[in-house]
Design a protein around this nucleic acid. Sequence first.
RNA 1: GCGAGGGUAGCCAAGCGGCCAACGGCGGCGGACUCAAGAUCCGCUCUCGUAGGAGUUCGUGGGUUCGAUUCCCUCCCCUCGCACCA
Length: 886
Amino acid sequence: MSDAGYDHESVERRWQEAWDEADAYRTPDDIEDPTYVLGMYPYPSGKLHMGHVRNYTITDAYARFRRMQGDEVLHPMGWDAFGLPAENAAKERDTNPRDWTFDCIDTMRDQMNAMGFGYDWDREIATCTPEYYQWNQWLFSRFHDEGLVERRDAEVNWCPHCETVLADEQVEGEAELCWRCDTPVEQRELEQWFLKITEYADELLEDIDDLEGWPNSVRQMQRNWIGRQYGTELDFAIDGYGSVEAFTTRVDTIHGATFFALAPDHPISEAVAEEDEDVRQFIEHEADPEGDEPNGVETDLTATNPVTGDEIPVYVADFVLSDVGTGALMAVPGHDERDHAFAQKMDEEIKPVIAPKPEDWDGETVPDAPDVSEEAFTDDGVLVNSGDYSGLKSEVARERLTDEIDSAEEATQYQLRDWGISRQRYWGTPIPVVHCHDDCGAVMVPEEDLPVELPEFINTTGNPLDAAEEWKRTTCPECGGEATRETDTMDTFVDSSWYFLRYVSPGAEDVPFDLEQANDWMPVDQYVGGIEHAVMHLLYSRFFTKVLADHEGLEHREPFTNLLAQGMVQLEGEKMSKSKGNTVSPQRIVEEYGADTARLFMMQAAQPERDFDWSEEGVRSTYAFLGRLKGMVEDYVADEPDGENDTVASYVDAEIDATIAIASEEYDDLTFNRALRETQDLTRTLRQYATHADPHPATYERGLSAVVRLLAPVAPHLAEELWDDLGNDDLVADAEWPTAEVDRDHVRKRRQLVQNTREDIRDIVEVAGIEEPTGIDVVIAPEWKYDALEIAIESDADNLIGELMQESHIREQGDAAADYGQDLQAEREALSMTLSPGEEHAALESAAWLIEREFDAPVRVVRAADADDSVLKNATPGRPGIEIDD
RNA sequence: GCGAGGGUAGCCAAGCGGCCAACGGCGGCGGACUCAAGAUCCGCUCUCGUAGGAGUUCGUGGGUUCGAUUCCCUCCCCUCGCACCA
């Protein structure tokens, strides 16, 4: 057989047409609760890349598996169709974002079909259509009604290259670069629309615990992102400025607060700068919040420590951030590393007020103060130098101090900020607001006037919406006077925060999604996508789902039950990327080897969540495998064998069961690589069988039929072809998953026995230097040894031998029983039950052909009763005796 | 620095208390088939060994256990995420 493979092109075309004709992947609206399998919808950039292919092969394989298992399945696809690249592309090509986007969508849809992905295209959505984005606007206005929308001045991340605002999450790394174009991000003050995700911070955080179907890494990333911290807010008085609120998680260290620090843009800092030249100089020129070095300048002010009454110096310092806590902090250099570094630099006092808790602490005695001159002690401990509070544990002191300081109260801080959704771009959902020229302010566009549709694209450097004069001019819905449309569009993450709900009822005209249907069909059972969305998309989707549950009657508070973050496809250990120029084009692979090969290679190469290396060699061997399988089926059909249902057939039959049992479990766990390995092993076994003997037709066909179906989720086209060859009238996509009634433990033991026996024979032949064996006897251990083993496992008597000898049929064995008893005693704790003598006999009998074939000598599997004592001596349960003649 | 996940034979990579010298793949070696090559199939691939044996291994050093690659601790290294976060 050659490695020429097969005519994949005609096979794939034929079955794609057949699926089309049969509407094989439609999910009718009237079903109860389908298994919802979803891959993160792509941005239509123009071409599928390997990452897409991997992502969507995973969902497709799983969806097909579930369908064959008898589930109803919802497996839709759509397009994350708004976004900046379309605008840039339109400018470059002198077209408009809409046409460019729809061209890309058409191309990618064709490519997906060429890959054989089984989507219900009747549910396709594209977020850039008014039919979709009107619901973004509707949701925005509903959020507004519920007080979850806010317009406020905000310092925003501004990318000068993209001319747009970026969310914090879109700013990458320490250098603060734009996630799309790697331009350094600047800060700008703009009026922005925000969604108040912080209102849901607690629930978003706490519910993470219940997301058991999510990877830990993603859960942890979300926890970090939300960043909840409990602490104390309290006032320090600064003369001339009244009281200033500071937040601290370590109020227990307050006696060690030796100075106070304000953010450069704190109102007091700004006021001081008016009069103090040094402070102004610092704020305007020296402050460098990004730098590693903590910088600051001392003011003439002092702050009063509310506990000690001490007057401590006030600094303006760049390591104090206005958006963390209150933008003002009490500095405790003895117990905070950053404060320590700053105090050393400014030569401020460093005072120990917490001592490590002594190991044998009595709970009262005040320990000695630690030396904090060189390094801060940052752990909790026991208070010292803290007046009445000395001798308390940190934890207790925090509670008492928060209680007893007049201005202090418990406070919770979050790292999570409200979600700024304003973008100064064209290709997005217009924010449905008009600005009244009179006094009505910013007014929501009434529901009946939605959607606010995008005007024609204008090619300009700024925001094209700002240049659309006619579109901008409108009337105020409240007073009827002149008004101007809001020109900001929404962050595209708004679109993706609920698209999974739209698939449920994509044609709904009066609602974003059919509530009843969504309540039945949601949540998504299996969601698959890249780890890059661990925070943003997945957090926003959870937020939307919770809001919809609170205000729109959705009966689910989490959108995705199980999440799989798929690994990268790499080339020689490096991530494939256009900029590195190390991409492999899916299109080329499909042309050369076919979609099935590409899919099968990817799924068998690694577990879905792991990275793996693309290998042309691996692709070729996968292709060859499919070709060989096709040959096997064709040979079988062309010339049906008529072998006996003998022991060899029984071996093959047992292997078929074993493979089905294992592969089914692995498919269920999405560990396709293991399922496919088993399937390929079985294929090899079948081929060996056909080479070795004239196969028993029913057994052989059962094997082929199982292999074809086990492969169908991953290599669907060829599976259809072979299923058809085997004489089936239905589509394999609709076929029943093969079943087997064996448990994996039994399979494991059986395979182990055969494997060990074969290895032992090889060992003996090798070590004894037997050139040409003339006969091999495999002898099952006598029944009494199995009994003895069972007794040994169950017994907890000290003297096992004694216990065994109570059984007369064991005692009768004399020395042999004593010897075996010794062996059992020695391995007492490690014993486990083997197959029964009868099962061992059957297993070895059916595997005897493998040994005969290998050594070219007759093999007898002998029961103990028919064997010589000399061989029996070495035979134990799980380990037959072996006698080789030469 | 904090958090998460890792470190397994030449390489990739399973296993996560006992048939574990450790699945599988790649690479290498030998054999069958072939005129030959390729493909395919069968073995071998830590060391020693003339009947299935023995010895040394799973980042480092300890510990728990009858028994540890598997559990606990120390340290070292890698990858990812977060980070002047008060």
